[in-house]
């Protein structure tokens, strides 16, 4: 609860400051946004431990290792990175870059699960 309160406070403060300095110095406002995003992400890192524990439990139950859960975690990390980068680019009025980042992120995510899909297609081929 404390973490989310600090996060909200930091985000609101950065937004107000950004609005103030954007008209005079848009580059500085952009850097302020980027540093706020990095600060907020760093503060949520402890929550990732819970996900890591959940992943370890799933691996233990499923008896299969990172071969299966690894690609999904990478997809998740990619989605975070892609979304934040695209929004930062949009904020800087660079929609073309934002669209390109989104597309690149989707392609990377799909390529993570291509080995799984190849195995599935071989299985379907054997069945049929």
């Amino acid at each position: 609860m404390e973490v989310i309160a600090k996060t909200v406070a930091a985000a609101l403060a950065a937004t107000v400051l950004g609005l103030l300095i954007k008209q005079k110095n848009p580059e500085l406002a952009m850097l302020l946004s980027l540093s706020t995003v990095l600060l907020i992400l760093l503060s949520t890192l402890p929550f990732l431990n819970d996900f890591r524990e959940l992943l370890a439990t799933v691996n233990q139950i499923s008896g299969r290792q990172e071969i299966y859960a690894g690609p999904l975690m990478k997809c998740f990390a990619l989605s975070l990175l892609t979304k934040i980068s695209a929004e930062l680019c949009t904020e800087a009025s660079n929609r073309a870059a934002a669209a390109a980042v989104e597309m690149a992120g989707t392609l990377c995510a799909v390529s993570m699960i291509i080995p799984l899909m190849t195995s599935i297609l071989k299985l379907i081929g054997d069945l049929v």
Binding site: L72, K83, I84, E102, G105, T106, I113, L116
Partner: peptide, 18 residues
Amino acid sequence: VSPDRKMASVIEMGGCCI
């Protein structure tokens, strides 16, 4: 928790493959 709907769909696809 994935912010992007497209990525959420890719994650679900991966889950089905698994």
